[in-house]
Structure formats: C-alpha cells, structure tokens
C-alpha cells in the first residue's frame, strides 16, 4: 500500500507535464468567464421577468428559474451539445454542430443563470419600498429607478453570494472535459492514456484544484466579512 501511496504523492510526473496541464487550466478559466457572463445577463433578465407586471412574463421567468436551477450540470451539458444542434438543424433545415466550447458555455451559463436569477430577485425585493417611492416622487421613470436606485443596491447586497456562485461555477467547469473541451481534466486523461500512470496525475489534479479553490474561498470569505459590515453599517 505504501508503494501506491508513494506513487500517488510523487508529483514529479504532474510537474513534468505542467505546461500542457496549465493550458488546460486556462481553458477552464475561459469557459468560466464566458459562462459567467451568460449566467449574469440571462439571470438578470429572468429575475426582472419574475417581477414584471404581466403574469405571462412572471410565469416564463419562474419556469426558466425552476428548470435550470434543478437541472444537473452534466445532463444539461450533454443535452446542449447533442440535442440542441439537432433541434436547431431541424428548424433551419441544415446540419448544425456546436463546438464543445460553445456547448459548455451555453449549458453552464444557463444552469447558473437560474441561481443568479434567484439571487437577483431576492436582492431586488429586499430594497425598501421607500427608496422607490422617493424615485417616483421625483418623476423618475421605472427604468431609471431600476438602473440608478434598485440594481446598484442589489449588486452591493448580493456581491458575497454572487462570488460564492462564481466559485461554484468555476468548480463546475471541470465537467467540460466530458465533451472534449481541452481543459485540465481532459489533458490529465490524455497524459494518463499515454503514460498509464493515473495515481500521481489524479492526485495532482485534486491538489491543484483544491489549492486554487481554497485560496479563492478564503479570499471571498474575508472580503464578504468586511463587505457586509460596510454595506449594512
């Protein structure tokens, strides 16, 4: 047993391939950035629909949130990559294929848009009515009130929660290797196929991700502490 333990802790192999593995990590970051943009914008849109005056809009917003919040990342990834192109292809009568990167961004972006939508909605509804009354009393349009009064406050209040969602999202990008996006785990599996030595590589990957996420989480925790104190002064 100690031989295996030694093997798995012998990270020299991991270090040897660090260039290609780092490339993979950068891909994770890229997927994360693109998907995060999608999640934020779609999530905001869904949240605004949920508090719209017209009930069909509210209904659609709620449907969006419930479908995507409750959907497992992996099945969404597979569905977007394999089913969505076929559906679109049927619509425009052409063969459509998604680049795996695109599928990953769409799938993760939409799944997390559900979580962001809920966070936004809770934040919007927490703004005291008086703030809005004052805006209206001054003759501000609803749109002006939304962008100058409501959303700046929502962003301030929800920043810690949003940061935690971002960290979750970054962790979720590890599954994109399953549709052949060349991220860290994909490159790890490539190296394993070549070197036939899984132990140090999987261990190395686990440690790498742990370190990154750990540092990010600690950072976010400290920041959120100080931020909350400042905002709720």
């Amino acid at each position: 047993m100690s031989d295996a333990l030694k093997q798995s802790l012998d990270l020299s192999m991991f270090w040897e391939y660090r260039a290609i593995l780092l490339q993979g990590l950068i891909f994770n970051a890229l997927v994360f950035l693109c998907a995060a943009s999608v999640a934020l914008s779609v999530g905001l849109g869904a949240a605004l629909m949920r508090i719209n005056r017209f009930w069909p809009m509210r209904w659609i917003g709620t449907l969006h949130v419930e479908v995507f919040r409750n959907a497992p990342d992996y099945i969404m990834l597979v569905w977007v990559h394999f089913v969505l192109p076929l559906l679109i292809g049927m619509l425009i009568r052409r063969r459509v294929e998604f680049h795996p990167f695109v599928s990953a961004v769409i799938a993760l972006g939409f799944v997390y848009s559900g979580y962001f939508a809920e966070a936004f909605r809770a934040g919007i509804q927490a703004i005291p009515q008086g703030n809005l009354d004052a805006g209206r009393a001054f003759g501000m349009s609803e749109r002006l009130i939304l962008w100058r009064i409501t959303l700046p406050q929502v962003v301030r209040r929800m920043l810690p929660e949003a940061l935690n969602l971002f960290i979750s999202m970054f962790k979720a990008t590890t599954i994109v290797s399953l549709i052949a996006v060349p991220d860290l785990m994909y490159n790890v599996s490539m190296v394993i196929a070549q070197e036939m030595r899984p132990l140090p590589l999987y261990t190395g990957a686990a440690l790498t991700y742990f370190l990154i996420i750990f540092l990010l989480s600690v950072g976010v925790r400290h920041f959120s502490e100080r931020w909350r104190r400042k905002i709720l002064a």
Binding site: P128, G130, N131, D133, A134, G135, R136, A137, F138, G139, M140, S141, E142, I149, P152, Q153, R156
Partner: peptide
Amino acid sequence: SLAEINAMRRELGVVFQQFNLWPH
C-alpha cells in the same frame, strides 16, 4: 401616461416620513 405624470411630478417636492434617501 406615466411619462406625463412623471413630468408633472417634477414640480412637486416630496419629503417622506422615512426620509427615503438612497443609501448607495
């Protein structure tokens, strides 16, 4: 329309019991 009402609201200054200053 709401836009017209908003335009007329400019002429009335309101001070609320809860102040309603915008905290940000």
